[in-house]
Every structure is written in structure tokens, then in C-alpha cells.
Write a protein that binds this DNA or RNA. Structure first.
Length: 877
RNA sequence: GAUCUGUUAGCUCAGUUGGUUUAGAGCGCUUGCUUGACAGGCAAGAGGUCACAAGUUCAAAUCUUGUACAGAUCACCA
């Protein structure tokens, strides 16, 4: 069979993914083995795969595949969330394209369209994850609006309401005039913008010609002003105490008030107060009993209360009011100004602070144990610097606005009665019952009850995710939740630490009494080479699907993993995927080499081969040891790099070169089997990182039965120790080989010219196997152990204080050799001096641990010996 | 503005409780190779006064303080 010189992942990857799913190998059911569980951070149902998902899901897949191979009953639960705002916006647009206006639909009609859209277009991302190799238990795929998950959300709402942790009230909220809903504090992003500062003067009532000047960035809100505030100690304004001012244009009389909140240095030191449209003004309004005048409609246009510019958009009005103010003689001046403005994270619309009646969840009590869980180390953060961020937020946590003025989502289970009271219940029947109990005199029937029109924040379902995917809210004792919860690890992005991670911890402790996960691994942000965040608008993000087509899913996984130490930003570079692809190709070709050999079952195993196999076994042990430690600490890039080097540098560049039979000669059967064993171990170790090519090679290295898979084959484990002496001896052998190759390179001696090697040592120190390795790798035809004073003309080197020489008749320039030796000598002498300086320091010898002093003494004797050899060598030339 | 985290080779990063020769890796770079597995390759190299300054110590990339720069989080003044 001829094998292509280049590995082609395209056929292989689809084949094995189908094989795994056909055999339902990702599926898990509770059993007697220990569980390892991960729940996917549910992507938006509207989402498509981007580089952040690639990183996040590759990491989860590595952990799950590894756990599976370590004997855990591993489950990775996939799913999506319903993303209220994003999905509703998508559906509204979709309908608009078909000429349907949302307003013309009833709630039920709209939701029917929304579900249709979801079934047809939602969850593409879950399909895309298959291409990556994600070993999710697809039978368990969940959606936050599935009936059982929805019920859990309602249960939780009612539970919190009954505990007094959910309340309804009028508060200043972040209003998104585009999505026409409130959003939580966490959904507002502040951006710096260039704007203007308008100075406007208000006439003092009853004092013609007397004015007080304020500065504002939002002149349109003047129409809703209900006071002007100054600092009580500001002498400039002391004279106005008790007076009133006239609001320009609307000619409303408003009080002049004094409060320490005002910064005297800023602007004019006089602040206009619009309690309906600014959170700080609102608080001052309450304190000073001011009138609240709401001048905006929900969509951000001015309403009747504004009296002027009614119906105009707030930003248009901001421009349009200027000439009016000027005309009225109230505009003083305009300055350029830079300030920060809040934008809706979802729609990128400027947030309008708005007073409205909303539902809130009290966070203080929920936050306390959740903070402790992280600070006490029950939950570990990787990297742990995020503990600070977490603590800071948790200690200053504010109540959570959980209602959204949308239709797509979990409807708030509150039912209003004709008397403006309400009850909270699972359904209308229960609500009616409750209402009748509460108000028997009203003689209520179902028609009297009206359910709240709003839905809940999407995160109000996401925070239950690790519980609700196992149905642990509705059925707290069911076998699945008992078995899989708490989950083993959460892999997520740090920007949702508050939205999601913190709240999941609260929910876990509140409804399960235990933490929802033990470890939280925060991935970095994927950026481009110029450190810019990858985004659609910048167009700097590669298409993950195209990347996988180009480099193979294994190649892309390799690239993502290699560049992602935990928590560090990841500067994505396609070159890393290329490196991954090249690695696959390297293994493929190693396989081609091995498969191409003729096997002679009667052949004898050569000494160099026996030595190399022993060494390779120890090297694998060494790497397994470091890898287990790395993975325990979530240092996946280091773990992968250590196997990468094991395969490429040790197995391919060294081991295979040693055991390779001469051209057209067979390899002995014992060696062949041992090589296949080693190869199998290597693909086994690599499988969690690059599952496709490893599965392919595993199936071709030996005959397998249908239904067998590398992903279910136990992972080789570190035995607990390595033969360090053997490893050191082989490392020394490789150094000698390198030195000889260096001589070849310097003297321009081709690899086909065999060389001789003289070792200035007693032959009893030699190991025949290792000598044979040197002969093979460096193409040395003979190794002679000679007396220390033997004369050889050639190139020499010292390794571990043993002198070696390669006799080279006529090829060596004595002067050049001398110069080199002289340089070595100088270096060694300088080094010796530094060691001696240390050792002659009495306090060092007295204070340093004996071990450290011994090391220095050893350095001294080694250096002295080296100097002796170098001098001897120089004398001979 | 407050807090936190960084600053080590051209780039991206390791470097455990201070002590294993004068600091490591991958990529990139330089030089030489039509080497019977692989140019998606092979071999050999070059490259760093560990941001800066002071201090603690027998000993500092590692600990302390300060400075500079970068990033993150939170808070915002109209």
C-alpha cells in the first residue's frame, strides 16, 4: 500500500467523528465509576462559531477526553441559551423582511414565529462544534427554554419571591431604547466619546438680569429639570439661598438647593437636576423631595411633558434645542468635552437612565456564601488573580434587575388582580387559588387575572445551568444530579465572571447547598497579532470553519492550545495552526517509515536499538510525570509542548534514526513490535489534544475490531519514578553526537563520510549500546578508548570532563584549534574564579546550606579538571 | 480616580518555597543540505547586563520599596 507523503485530515476527521457518534461513545450514564462532568458555557442560540468558542471548547474537549481515558465516567453536556434580546431582535428583523410588524402580532403569534426561527436557524454552532471534534454527549443537548429547564426557572423565581429575595419596585434602570427593555448594570459598557459641554444660564426668579449658569452634556434634558444644585460651602452661590430659578423655554420655576454631592471645581459649580433621567439626580430628588418629570418615551423620543420638540429623537433634540436656547438668550457657550457614555452591550444603543417598575433580585445574602466559597478555596480559579476581581464585585454587589420588556424568554410568573395586588404562582390555576385565598371577597375568576407581560433576564436561567441540565431543581434527588453534580470544572471567559460564574456559584449554594464546580479555568481573550480583540466589525477574525478545512481540526486545536497559557490573552496567528498541521504530518510520516519496513522474525536486536528502546521508555515516563503535573495546574500549552517535543525531537529525530534498519534491510521482529508499542503509547498520550490523527494511526498501527477506539483506551500513567541515570547517560550520548555533527558542519564533512572517534578514557566506562548509538547517529565507524596522553591530530571536544577527538588528517588547522581551545580555557577560568570567589566568602560557607556549598565545590573541581584537560590539549598542539 | 496583574531572546511565553555551572522553550532568523519517512523536512548556529533605581541577603529574574510603561476590573463629575 502506497501512503501519501502528506497527511490529509479532511477525509480522516469526518470518518472518525462519525465512528465515535455512531457508536455513541460520547454518551454517559451514571454508573459505579467516578464521574467527571463539564457543562458547556451555553452559546447563544443565534450564535455562530468564532475563535473564542474554538479556544474554549478545545480546552473542554481536552479535559473531557483525558478524563474519559483516565477511567472517569466523563460527560460533557452541550446546549444553547435562548438569548432574549438577541433572538428577539433577530426574529423581529426576520419578520420585518417578510413585511410583518411585531406590533401587529399577539404575544402567542410572535412566539410561534420565534420558535419556528429557532428550530430552523438556531443552534448552528452546535453543528459546527462537531467539526472541531467536540466529544459532547449530544443526547443530552439542552436549551434554556426546554420545558424542564423553564420550569426550573419559574420554581426558582417563586422560591426567591417567597423567601423575600425578589421584589418589584420603581427604580432607575438602564433602559435600552432600541430593544425597548431594561438591562442590568452588567450589560452596560462605558465608552469614551467626544461630546460638548453646554453652558446655559437660568434666570433667578424675581431678579431680572440675575442668572445662574450651569454646564451640561445633555441640554435636551433641561426640559425635565426640577432643581439646580450647588455646594453648600460655595461662596459664589451663597447669596441665592432660598431663591428659585426659571427653567429656560418651559419657564418652570424650580428651587435652588444645596448638597455636598456637587463638585465645586467642575463646570460652573452649579448642577441642573433632572431626577427622571439621571441616577444621581434621582437620588438627590428623593433627598430633596423634588418633582420628577419624565420627558422621554420608551423609544427615546421626547414626550408631551417636554413641551418642546415633542416626538423628536433625543439626539436630534440635543441639536435642535441649541438654537432655541440661543434665541431665548440662555446659551452662554459651548466647549468640546470628552466623557464616558453607557452603551447597551446587546444593541450598542446609548443607554437612557429611566425610572420604571421592574423586578429585582436581592443579591447581598446570596453573595456572602458565594464569596466565601472562592476565598476559602473550595472553588479554585485558574489563574487565581481573578479572585480579586470576584471579591471586589461580590463585596459591592447591587440588586439585580431581572425583568426584561420582551416576549422571548421565561415569562414572569406574577399575576395581577383587579385591585392592583398580585400573586406569584407556577400557573394560572395556582395563581387563582392563591388570589382567592388572599381576597375571598373579590370572587375572582381566571379572567380577572393578568400575567406580567415581561420575561426574565437570560442569565436568570443560565445561572441554574449546572443544576438544571441534570434536572436538579425540580427533582433534587434524581440519580443524575446526585451523580454528576458538582461538576468538575468550568471553562469560560473572564468577561462573564459576574454575569455567569458568580451567579452560578450563588445558585449552586442556594439550591444544592454545594458549589457547582471545583475549578474555574478562565481562558484568555483571542486577539490578533496587533493585540486587537477579534471582532466582526474589524474583520480581523478568521473563519474557524475555513481554518479547520485548511489545517485540519487537529491542526487548529494544536494552534489554539499551544498559544493559550491560562488567563493570558491569546495572540492568534495562523502560523500556530500551520505548526499543528506540520506536527500531524510529522507523525504521519513517522508512521509511513515504520510501516514501510520489512520484518524479519528471526532477526537479532542490535545493541544500539536495545539501548534506544530502554531510553525511549524512560523518556515517556519522564514526560508523563511532568504532563500530569501540568494538567493538574491547567497548563495545557506546556503539557502539549512537552509531548510535541517528545514525539518530534526524541521519537522521530533520535529514536527512529537509531532503530532504523539500513536501506532495504529488514528490521527484527522484536524491535518492530516494541516500536509499534511505543508509537501506540505516543498517540494515546496525544489523543485528548489531537483526537483525529491519533485515532487514525491507532487503527492502522494494529488490527482493531469494530467498536474499538483510542478514545476509550486507558491513558498511560506515570509509574512514579524514572531511571535518571539512564536518562543522563543517554543525554550525554546525544551531546557527543551533537559535537561530532558540529565538527562535520564546521569542516564541511558530509554525513556519508564515516569518521573515527577517540575517547580519552578507560574502556571500562563505556556502554556498548550507547557507543553503538553514537556510531549510528554520527556515522562513526570505530570508537577507540585511548590513554590520556595519546596523540591525535584532529578536532576535539570535552563532554562531562571526558575528552574526545575526531582524527582528521589534513583537515584541521592547528592555529584555529588553538584559538578555540584558548577561548574555552578563558571561559572555564573565568567561571572557576567566580566559583572560588563564592567559596572564599566565609559567610557563604558558614550560612549557605551544606548542599549548596557542596554544589559549588563540585563546580570547582569540575572546572579545575576541565582546565587541566584544556591545558594538556593546548600543550600538545 | 481606586484596585489588581504584568514587564525575561525579534515575537509568544516558561522559570515552583531565593541557591544545579554565566537563564530555558516554541516560532522566527542565519548557514549548509535533491540525506530513500517527511522541504509541511534534515543538520548546525546566532540571539538576553531578566523594564529602571534603591534596598534586604552569604546569595536576587525570584523578596521589599519607589519610578516608568502596558493590560484588566470597578467607579464615575453634570
Amino acid at each position: 500500500m502506497e501512503l501519501a507523503t502528506k497527511y490529509d485530515p479532511s477525509v480522516v476527521e469526518d470518518k472518525w467523528y462519525k465512528y465515535w457518534t455512531d457508536h455513541r461513545m460520547f454518551h454517559s450514564e451514571p454508573d459505579s465509576r467516578p464521574a467527571y462532568s463539564i457543562v458547556i458555557p451555553p452559546p447563544n442560540v443565534t450564535g455562530v462559531l468564532h475563535m473564542g468558542h474554538m479556544l474554549n471548547n478545545t480546552i473542554q474537549d481536552v479535559l473531557v477526553r483525558r478524563a474519559r481515558k483516565l477511567g472517569f465516567n466523563a460527560v460533557w453536556v452541550p446546549g444553547t441559551d435562548h438569548a432574549s434580546i438577541a433572538t428577539e431582535a433577530k426574529v423581529v428583523n426576520f419578520l420585518k423582511e417578510q413585511g410583518i410588524d411585531k406590533k401587529s402580532l399577539t404575544r402567542e403569534q410572535f412566539l410561534e414565529y420565534a420558535w419556528q426561527w429557532k428550530e430552523k436557524h438556531g443552534g448552528i454552532i452546535l453543528q459546527q462544534l462537531r467539526k472541531l471534534g467536540a466529544s459532547c454527549d449530544w443526547d443530552r443537548t439542552k436549551f434554556t427554554m426546554d420545558p424542564e429547564l423553564s420550569e426550573a426557572v419559574i420554581d426558582v423565581f417563586i422560591d426567591l419571591y417567597n423567601k423575600g429575595l425578589i421584589y418589584r419596585g420603581v427604580r432607575m434602570v438602564n433602559w435600552d431604547p432600541k430593544a425597548l427593555t431594561a438591562v442590568s448594570d452588567e450589560e452596560v459598557v462605558y465608552k469614551e466619546v467626544h461630546s460638548k459641554l453646554y453652558y446655559v444660564r437660568y434666570q433667578i426668579e424675581g431678579e431680572p438680569g440675575e442668572y445662574i449658569t450651569i454646564a451640561t452634556t445633555r441640554p435636551e434634558t433641561i426640559l425635565g429639570d426640577s432643581a439646580i444644585c450647588m455646594h453648600p460651602d460655595d461662596e459664589r452661590y451663597a447669596k441665592y439661598k432660598g431663591k428659585r430659578a426659571i427653567v429656560p423655554l418651559v419657564n418652570r420655576s424650580i428651587p435652588l438647593i444645596y448638597d455636598e454631592y456637587v463638585e465645586r471645581e467642575f463646570g460652573t459649580g452649579a448642577l441642573k437636576i433632572t431626577p427622571a433621567h439621571d441616577i444621581n439626580d434621582y437620588n438627590l430628588g428623593i433627598k430633596h423631595h423634588l418633582e420628577t418629570i419624565n420627558i422621554f418615551n420608551d423609544n427615546g423620543t421626547l414626550n408631551e411633558s417636554a413641551q418642546f420638540l415633542v416626538g423628536m429623537d433625543r439626539f436630534e433634540a440635543r441639536k435642535a434645542i441649541i438654537p432655541l436656547l440661543e434665541e431665548a438668550g440662555n446659551l452662554v457657550k459651548i466647549e468640546d468635552y470628552t466623557n464616558k457614555v453607557g452603551y447597551s452591550e446587546r444593541t450598542n444603543e446609548v443607554i437612557e437612565p429611566k425610572l420604571s417598575l421592574q423586578w429585582f433580585c436581592k443579591m447581598g445574602e446570596l453573595a456572602k456564601p458565594a464569596l466565601a466559597a472562592v476565598m476559602d478555596g473550595d472553588i479554585k480559579f485558574y489563574p487565581d488573580k481573578f479572585k480579586n476581581t470576584y471579591a471586589h464585585w461580590m463585596e459591592n454587589v447591587k440588586d439585580w434587575c431581572i425583568s426584561r420588556q420582551l416576549w422571548w424568554g421565561h415569562r414572569i410568573p406574577a399575576y395581577y388582580l383587579p385591585n392592583h395586588e398580585f400573586v406569584v404562582a407556577h400557573n394560572i390555576d395556582e395563581a387563582l387559588q392563591l388570589a382567592q385565598q388572599k381576597f375571598p371577597e373579590l370572587n375572582l375568576s381566571k379572567e380577572d387575572l393578568k400575567q406580567d407581560e415581561d420575561v426574565m433576564d437570560t442569565w436568570f436561567s443560565s445561572w441554574l445551568w449546572p443544576i438544571s441540565v441534570f434536572d436538579g431543581i425540580r427533582h433534587p434527588d434524581n440519580p443524575e444530579i446526585q451523580y454528576y453534580y458538582p461538576t468538575s470544572a468550568l471553562i469560560t471567559a473572564p468577561d462573564i465572571i459576574f454575569f455567569w460564574v458568580a451567579r452560578m456559584i450563588m445558585a449552586g449554594l442556594e439550591w444544592r447547598g454545594t458549589i457547582p464546580f471545583k475549578d474555574v479555568y478562565f481562558t484568555g481573550t483571542v486577539r490578533d497579532k496587533l493585540h486587537r480583540k477579534m471582532s466582526k466589525s474589524l474583520g480581523n477574525s478568521p473563519d474557524p470553519i475555513m481554518l479547520m478545512e485548511q489545517y485540519g481540526a487537529d491542526g487548529v486545536r494544536f494552534g489554539m492550545l499551544l498559544s493559550s497559557p491560562a488567563g493570558n490573552d491569546l495572540l492568534f496567528d495562523e502560523a500556530l495552526c500551520e505548526q499543528g498541521r506540520n506536527f500531524s504530518n510529522k507523525m504521519w510520516n513517522a508512521f509511513r517509515l515504520v510501516k514501510g519496513w520489512q520484518v524479519d522474525d528471526n532477526g537479532q536486536q542490535p545493541a544500539h536499538t536495545a539501548a534506544a528502546i530502554e531510553w525511549m521508555q524512560q523518556r515517556i515516563q519522564e514526560v508523563l510525570g511532568s504532563m500530569e503535573e501540568d494538567i493538574k495546574r491547567y497548563r495545557l500549552s506546556e503539557a502539549l509542548m512537552s509531548v510535541y517535543k517528545l514525539v518530534w525531537d526524541d521519537f522521530c529525530s533520535c529514536f527512529l534514526e537509531v532503530v532504523k534498519p539500513p536501506f532495504h534491510q529488514p528490521i527484527d521482529g522484536k524491535t518492530y513490535n516494541q516500536i509499534i508499542d511505543l508509537f501506540e503509547i505516543l498517540v494515546n498520550i496525544l489523543h485528548p489534544f489531537i483526537p483525529f490523527i491519533t485515532e487514525e494511526l491507532w487503527h492502522t498501527l494494529r488490527e482493531r475490531n469494530d467498536g474499538e477506539s483510542l478514545m476509550l483506551t486507558p491513558m498511560p500513567r506515570y509509574s512514579g519514578s524514572v531511571d535518571q541515570k539512564l536518562l543522563d547517560a543517554f543525554a550525554n550520548t546525544r551531546s557527543v553526537v551533537e559535537q561530532i555533527r558540529h565538527i562535520r558542519s564546521e569542516k564541511n564533512i558530509g554525513p556519508k563520510n564515516a569518521l573515527k572517534l577517540h575517547v580519552y578514557a578507560d574502556s571500562t566506562v563505556s556502554t556498548p549500546g550507547l557507543d553503538a548509538v553514537i556510531m549510528k547517529l554520527a556515522n562513526v565507524e570505530s570508537i577507540d578508548y585511548v590513554a590520556a596522553d595519546a596523540q591525535v591530530s584532529g578536532a576535539s571536544f570535552i563532554e562531562k570532563n571526558v575528552k574526545y577527538a575526531v582524527p582528521l588528517e589534513g583537515l584541521v588547522d592547528n592555529d584555529e584549534e588553538k584559538r578555540k581551545l584558548q577561548a574555552d580555557l578563558e571561559y572555564a577560568e573565568k567561571f572557576l574564579q567566580s566559583v572560588l570567589k563564592k567559596l572564599s566568602n566565609e559567610s557563604f560557607v558558614k550560612n549557605a546550606p551544606q548542599k549548596v556549598v557542596d554544589i559549588e565545590r563540585k563546580k570547582q573541581s569540575d572546572a579545575e579538571e576541565k582546565i587541566r584537560i584544556l591545558k594538556e590539549q593546548l600543550a600538545k598542539l
